[in-house]
Design a protein around this nucleic acid. Structure first.
Lengths: 350, 350
DNA sequence: GACCTTGGAGAGAGCGCTCCCTGGAATACC
DNA sequence: GGTATTCCAGGGAGCGCTCTCTCCAAGGTC
């Protein structure tokens, strides 16, 4: 806020610009908002006045009347019951390439529209904090990354009528647009690839089981294997961090040393699994083949480089932004879902 | 914004709550803002009215008169000239544990004060975007993470009188508070440890050389070694990513195969260096000792675990938040610096 | 009982903007 | 030439809140 600028003077108002230019407040307002019915000569005069005075519209005043703020929030939400984890929430989300890709994709759409993106982590203790922020009208809408089907936030936003778009199929049916990838298809791709390269003892490391996407990947993997006669597939759940993948792999191989093919529900956990396998002296891919999920930068950084299921996160986030803008534009709340296709990216690990 | 709630009705106003309670607008306002001169009975009545109507103050209206928004921005800035990097800016900042720790530390202080934190990446094409956002008065102040001494943002904020606190010594002297760690001391700790464990051929991987903190770490390392007679220290610069650390290590060992002690300017690059050394068949720490910087989660995730220089990022961010709040509170612009102490954390790699 | 003090509620202005409405000048039409 | 039409600038209301000021009533003082 420029109210505390060093010289003590507040930033100029529309009125002052108008006075400088010798026109009315309305005219200046028109110039600023690009209304076409302004004499070109006057327009230029006003523009000069704006430049000279260093005028910047006061957002509060504007949005008081327009009821728009031209910014949307990217909320990364986490429910109460998963707070007892080894790695703090903020560490987790700011270490996973996921968020960066989502942000990049969303900005791709929002920036040209002149809409700002504010990123808000909402782990349990801050949940109500963030809700209050959203209710106060700081933003026009929210892109919601929710990590559990128990998360109340989608429902709350729905009830409050705050425009929102979800990053995945909601846990419970909700009249809300969302974007997703065909999780089951992705898992099937992984399963069939592992079978195709001759692996018979398959297992999987899943994400947290309260997440629809984790459930889908697990179910998809099992279903695809069932088709090929594999009735039982050992699995262990992680929480999408590297460390949890490492631990899950250790557990899995301790119980089932015969495993020769592993599907891991994201690249970060796969990287951890690779670490565990190295420690266990299992060669990848010769003895154990590993397939990840995401095709994030992490897949390229580990050794061997990860064969993985690509999901187009940037495009998905861009689509989320588009859906949100459409929703903000008109209050017509016909929820839409946009589903993307995964694909296998073959590298060294399988 | 609840203006688009499904039933089409806008969220209730102060006036409506007042009517419900049969009191004046002023009284409701007093209750909401916790003014003590309200009859307890009336207070309770008003509170009930607020609950029933589901009233939430309209932020725009409030901040129009108070000139406060009760939120501050965490801006991660990057200047123009470093945009040609291999890894996109957003990937970089959202993959480095750094940002998560900063956020956590800042929230520790801001949350109890009821102040919201919005995170804004400001890589080159969006720079003016973010500046506009800040000028519009969306936030009361900014915590600025700047990565180059060429970055114009600190100066701009200064000129505009927008309260801000920097995360490190500014490249050019500026009347602005900042927080830092004794970079040179940290580097010296690393140098002396490497010497103490009997290494003689030392080298370093630095951060980007347009960053004051990178310069300081490099200079500190060199200075400490000079004291022990080492006139020349091979170095290579990375950009704080894992991949850049890997590449720098390769370059360094190609040119100087005799290196037996390596100081790397952050843990992420050190992790990359470890990877390179593994590929090169050099055992760590037996043949090459490696010391990192940060003591981030990354230091624990790599093998061998990293000996590193701890910097208390969470506390530093908390202090930044405190300095900012003080600055926002009163316009008294006496800039303060708070310098933290690094310490060596010994693990496996050196 | 007349006066002063004090606690607590209401009235009103105004923050800076948008947007509708009005009105005057310029142009078009009969 | 008079009227209708268009164009474009200005006037004014009002968005929802805060905050100062006013005012009333209750209590205290002599």
């Amino acid at each position: 806020m420029t109210s505390s600028r060093p010289d003590g003077q507040r930033s100029p108002t529309l009125e002052e610009v108008a006075e400088w230019a010798g026109v009315s407040r309305s005219t200046v307002s028109r110039v600023i908002n690009g209304v076409s019915t302004v004499d070109p000569e006057l327009r230029e005069l006003v523009q000069r006045a704006i430049d000279v005075t260093g005028y910047v519209p006061n957002l509060a005043a504007r949005s008081l009347v327009t009821r728009r703020t031209d910014s949307v929030a990217l909320v990364v939400s986490e429910p109460d019951d998963r707070t007892e984890q080894t790695e703090p929430f903020l560490n987790r989300i700011f270490t996973d390439p996921f968020l960066g890709r989502i942000t990049a994709g969303a900005l791709e759409v929002l920036r040209p529209e002149g809409i700002h993106l504010v990123i808000m982590p909402a782990e349990s203790p801050a949940h109500h904090h963030v809700l209050r922020y959203l209710r106060q009208g700081h933003v026009d809408g929210v892109l919601l990354i929710s990590s559990s089907d128990e998360d109340p936030l989608p429902q709350q936003l729905c009830d409050l009528g705050i425009p929102a778009v979800l990053s995945a199929r909601p846990g419970k049916p909700l009249p809300m647009s969302y974007v997703d990838v065909e999780q089951q298809v992705g898992a099937k791709l992984a399963a069939e690839h592992l079978l195709a390269i001759g692996r018979h003892h398959l297992a999987t490391i899943s994400g947290p089981l309260d997440m629809p996407s984790s459930q889908d990947r697990l179910a998809g993997f099992r279903a695809a294997l069932a088709v090929h006669g594999h009735a039982y597939v050992p699995s262990a759940a992680g929480n999408f961090t590297r460390a949890s993948g490492e631990q899950a792999a250790r557990d899995l191989f301790a119980a089932h040393p015969e495993i020769d093919g592993l599907f891991v529900a994201n690249d970060l956990m796969a990287e951890g699994a690779l670490q565990a396998l190295r420690d266990l002296g299992r060669r990848v891919p010769e003895e154990v083949a590993v397939v990840g999920f995401d095709n994030s930068i992490a897949a390229l950084q580990c050794r061997p480089q990860l064969t993985t299921i690509h999901q187009p996160l940037e495009e998905m986030a861009a689509e989320m932004a588009r859906l949100l803008l459409a929703r903000i534009g008109k209050a017509d709340p016909k929820p839409r879902s946009v589903i993307f296709h995964p694909r296998l990216v073959k590298r060294e690990s399988a």
